[in-house]
Nucleic acid binder design. Structure first.
Lengths: 126, 126
DNA sequence: TGGGGTACTTACCTCTTGGTAAGTCACCCA
DNA sequence: TGGGTGACTTACCAAGAGGTAAGTACCCCA
């Protein structure tokens, strides 16, 4: 149940969107599914270095409950389960794109600041 | 210290952006500052129904440390402190805008589903 | 017979997030 | 003299997010 009643009512849209996206691996899962279109459980696990099986299933269930991810079970042995984005999931990812670009720019900015500091520290002492 | 080393390294941009935005009131604070341009501490507190003073100061400090919010102290009595967005804060808000729109659409969708369910429940039993 | 793969579930534990309540310091007003 | 304002800080506490480790059920391969 994890986060059962889906914290509402929301004050604004950001609020509502952050609610479904917040969770340590949710953004990465969405990104991974967007990149590959369709992924099996173990593929996702391998694609997200450090995720535990518990959190992966939990987040996938929440994303499914929120109508962002589609879960298709094939009645085979060994079992095969395929995850993909729903139409709503794809619109969410599209809305997330500018944020991702901002994040990339921020990482670049931070890294260049680090380099400046390192260079400053490397200067000979007067 | 709150979240001291700013969880890096990031796997992708979404990751980095969500890191600075996640926090119960961060999105609302950003939105409030974007709407009004400049706000005093008590104005923000009144604008965010339910926020505690502790969380408001903590979030504002983190946003300031992340270079998103500018904090101007006027040496007066009683003290006056004004918060506003930096250039980076404004670009973040711009990147957040599509997500906000998505959230609004989602709220509308959920509400209409609720109405359908209510109407279905209100049908006369056969 | 034992090891590995698939997709999970369950129990337990810890660390973080956020809430409550109170204290602070300087001033102004009644 | 006491209360109110402004912008905080501090101590304590509860809920929950997320990690670890083990168990499940079935099959294939060496």
């Amino acid at each position: 149940m994890a986060k059962a009643p889906r914290n509402g009512p929301y004050i604004c849209g950001i609020d509502a969107a952050l609610d479904v996206v917040s969770g340590k691996w949710k953004g990465l899962i969405l990104w991974e599914l967007d990149e590959h279109g369709m992924r099996r459980f173990a593929e996702l696990r391998r694609g997200l270095p450090g995720v535990s099986e518990k959190m992966l299933t939990q987040h996938l269930r929440e994303l499914e409950a929120d109508g962002l991810v589609h879960r298709q079970v094939h009645a085979e042995v060994p079992p095969r389960v395929e995850y993909s984005l729903t139409a709503h999931g794809r619109t969410l990812n599209a809305a997330l794109a500018p944020l991702g670009a901002w994040g990339v720019a921020r990482i670049r900015r931070e890294r260049s600041e680090l380099v400046e500091h390192r260079d400053a520290a490397a200067l000979p002492r007067p």
